[in-house]
Simulated scan of single mutants.
Amino acid sequence: MRVGILALQGAFIEHEKIIQNLGAEVVEIRQLKDLDGIDGLILPGGESTVQGKLLRQLNLLKPIQQLINEGLPVLATCAGLILLAKTIDGEESAHLGTLPIVIKRNAYGRQLASFTSDIDIKPVGSYPAVFIRAPYIESVNDDVDILGVVNDHIVAVQYHNQLGFSFHPELTNDPRIHEYFLSLIKNNHHN
């Protein structure tokens, strides 16, 4: 099983370690040919604006969009979730735009820049979620499954093959979200 991790900018190393510990192969995605033969994709945290710009410059945006629309399982965290969102609050254009949600960037403001909260995540149960300058999801389409909420804000969703989290599961010692992602990839292979 080969998992591609977008490695243009941001916190991708932590994701790599977890995926490798769970026994899957990791491919760092930096150019078009890196997408060949991947079974799943992780869009890590970082700066969504920078990542979006680099995706366009490297001609990765459309191919990734196409793979996701064709059913490639994707796990997006923090900035990665902003890349997936169809609508970014206060901005005219989206990046990949494959996930039918409205997202608000840096939603918690400076005073709540970083916090940890035990939240109930549908597929895994209670989870120690680490938020760092996190976005939150303002609204979702009817067919998007809400997996987790904190302070009345949606912070975790699933839409078919797309998993999106406002927080950083790669910064905990808890691999269950990544395990769930790998189970999506396995199920995808059986289709």
Rank of each mutant, 00 (worst) to 15 (best):
V27T: 12
S183C: 03
G52Q: 09
V74C: 12
H95M: 01
G46M: 08
R105T: 07
I82H: 07
P44S: 15
I68N: 03
L60W: 08
E138D: 03
I154F: 09
P73L: 00
H15K: 14
E92T: 08
Q31M: 09
H153W: 01
K33A: 14
R133G: 10
G80N: 09
E47H: 06
H190G: 04
P63L: 11
L83F: 01
I177S: 06
Y108K: 13
S126M: 11
Q111D: 07
D145L: 14
L32K: 15
L83S: 06
D89P: 00
A85D: 05
V50G: 02
G125D: 09
R105F: 11
L22G: 09
T116C: 11
L67T: 04
G90L: 06
I121E: 05
V102R: 13
F181Q: 02
D39Q: 13
D143Y: 09
L184R: 08
N191P: 14
D89H: 07
I154H: 04
H168R: 05
I38E: 13
A79W: 09
V149F: 00
E25H: 15
G40M: 08
Q66I: 03
I132H: 14
N188M: 08
I185G: 09
D152L: 07
I68G: 02
Y108T: 10
L75E: 01
S48R: 07
G37D: 07
Q66A: 02
I185N: 11
D145T: 07
Y136D: 14
P128S: 06
K33L: 08
L81D: 02
V50Y: 00
P44F: 06
L55V: 07
R176Q: 12
K62F: 03
H189L: 13
R110Q: 01
P128D: 12
P123I: 01
N161H: 12
A94R: 03
Q31G: 08
A7Q: 14
V102D: 04
E179F: 02
S166Q: 11
G164S: 14
Y108I: 06
P169Q: 03
I42E: 04
S183F: 02
Q57V: 01
G37T: 03
N21A: 15
F167A: 06
L184C: 10
I13G: 12
N106T: 03
V26M: 09
E138T: 10
H178W: 08
D143Q: 08
D174R: 10
C78N: 12
E28N: 13
V144N: 11
S114Q: 15
K33E: 10
K104N: 11
S126Q: 11
I82W: 10
H168L: 12
L61G: 00
E25D: 15
N151V: 01
G4H: 03
L54Y: 00
R133F: 12
Q162K: 11
A7M: 11
V140S: 06
E70V: 05
I13Y: 10
L163K: 03
G52Y: 14
D34I: 09
E47V: 03
V3K: 10
D152V: 00
S139H: 09
G148V: 10
D152C: 02
G164H: 13
Y159M: 05
I18P: 01
V102N: 10
S93K: 15
L84S: 14
R133T: 11
I68D: 00
N141R: 09
T98D: 10
E138S: 03
L35P: 00
D120A: 15
V26F: 11
A156W: 02
S117C: 02
T98M: 06
P135E: 02
I19S: 05
D142M: 02
L60R: 12
